[in-house]
Simulated assay, not measured.
Amino acid sequence: MYNSKIIGLGKYVPDNVVTNDDLSKMMDTNDAWIQERTGIQERRWVKEGSGDTTAVMGVKAARIAIERSGIDKDDIDFIVFATLSPDYYFPGPGVFVQKELDIKTVGALDVRNQCSGFVYAISVADNFIKTGMYKNILVIGSELHSHGLDKTDRGRGVSVIFGDGAGAAVLTREENNSKGILSTHLHSQGEYAEELVVKAPGMGTRWVTDILAENNPEDDSYFPYMNGQFVFKNAVVRFSEVINEGLEKNNLQVSDIDMLIPHQANLRISQFIQRKFQLTDDQVFNNIQKYGNTTAASIPIALTEAWEEGKIKEGDTVVLAAFGSGFTWGSVIIKW
């Protein structure tokens, strides 16, 4: 059995910065209200006509990750793409990455686990490498939320949270089992699936033809719905559980954590976890203030920034943790 290790990281965010004050011109909200509840000051939203899509942003992040990895794109054996906002209903964006990067006809897998998407994708890639099936895997998390948000007073509780962007990582084989990704841990609780959901269009609920035929301007089923307080309460519990699960699996203590990178769902969740584990500011990386919640892209964007800023060094114990729609949650324990 091999371990896998991350050898290249990259990120891409659109140039268009949307501040809280900008949002106050679209809906009844303000900077103080948004910051108090989420910690977010601004986010990036793709401009119409820019050419950026979920797949395109993923490609841009992937190019950087591959260049930094030191391997050739033709050495990539497999692609895993995590997103809730694909360019098309089908096919998924993984195949477009393969096409745009002109990678040979390797497999491309799309992962639909929303906020936990990158953690799930890393776990899939890690286990493919551990079994020896593949050697070099490209993992991407990318989201374009802004074109699907309700930017009226009705949707303000959700729409102020989300941003667009992409992050990518290249994983390769590591023969030293004390290095690289030590373990991954995945969970779900489907009984709460509709507490954070976009219900339509869907084959089992209301299809596009139904929505068009009804022509009901009051219909909000195709916008995100979130039971915010309920999600928060579950998130802080599951974050804690899955971080502890990973530490216990590897005989580690909280004091061994050099860097915790939580999914950037809400700064208040991250701060709650930081206090609970008694971690210092140097042990936790947050950038939701700048980018908002980029769902499957949030961890790879944050991981890339932390590495770029020299906050992750060789030999560090790095913990990734996520919780989101599904409910799904997970963690990754890495010896960098």
Results as ranks from 00 to 15, higher is better:
residue 37 R to P: 10
residue 276 K to S: 14
residue 285 F to Y: 14
residue 144 L to S: 04
residue 244 N to P: 02
residue 97 V to P: 11
residue 305 E to F: 01
residue 286 N to S: 14
residue 176 N to G: 01
residue 98 Q to P: 00
residue 44 R to I: 03
residue 265 A to G: 12
residue 335 K to N: 14
residue 109 L to I: 15
residue 95 V to Y: 02
residue 186 L to Q: 15
residue 305 E to P: 00
residue 3 N to K: 12
residue 153 D to I: 06
residue 207 W to M: 13
residue 128 F to D: 01
residue 325 S to D: 08
residue 310 G to W: 00
residue 202 G to C: 14
residue 152 T to A: 09
residue 75 D to C: 02
residue 14 P to C: 10
residue 275 R to P: 00
residue 115 C to V: 11
residue 256 D to M: 05
residue 40 I to R: 09
residue 211 I to H: 04
residue 198 V to W: 03
residue 262 P to W: 00
residue 251 N to E: 08
residue 204 G to K: 15
residue 12 Y to V: 10
residue 71 I to W: 04
residue 83 T to C: 05
residue 80 V to T: 01
residue 317 T to Y: 10
residue 167 G to V: 08
residue 148 G to H: 10
residue 116 S to D: 12
residue 192 Y to E: 06
residue 231 V to T: 01
residue 95 V to R: 04
residue 109 L to S: 06
residue 69 S to P: 11
residue 74 D to H: 11
residue 3 N to C: 04
residue 218 E to M: 13
residue 160 V to H: 09
residue 58 G to H: 12
residue 148 G to M: 06
residue 224 P to V: 07
residue 326 G to M: 08
residue 250 N to K: 05
residue 42 E to V: 01
residue 225 Y to W: 02
residue 240 S to C: 15
residue 261 I to Q: 08
residue 4 S to I: 06
residue 24 S to M: 08
residue 59 V to S: 11
residue 94 G to K: 08
residue 74 D to G: 07
residue 299 I to R: 15
residue 43 R to Q: 12
residue 95 V to C: 14
residue 78 F to G: 01
residue 179 K to C: 00
residue 127 N to C: 00
residue 223 F to M: 06
residue 191 E to Y: 11
residue 25 K to M: 06
residue 296 A to S: 15
residue 317 T to C: 06
residue 314 E to P: 02
residue 156 R to S: 13
residue 30 N to T: 04
residue 236 V to E: 05
residue 85 S to R: 05
residue 36 E to L: 12
residue 330 G to D: 06
residue 218 E to A: 13
residue 257 I to V: 07
residue 166 A to W: 13
residue 34 I to R: 07
residue 91 P to F: 09
residue 55 A to I: 10
residue 273 I to R: 14
residue 139 V to M: 04
residue 222 Y to C: 06
residue 30 N to P: 00
residue 287 N to P: 00
residue 61 A to Q: 09
residue 193 A to F: 04
residue 234 N to G: 15
residue 89 Y to W: 11
residue 89 Y to A: 14
residue 78 F to V: 00
residue 203 M to C: 09
residue 332 V to G: 07
residue 252 L to W: 09
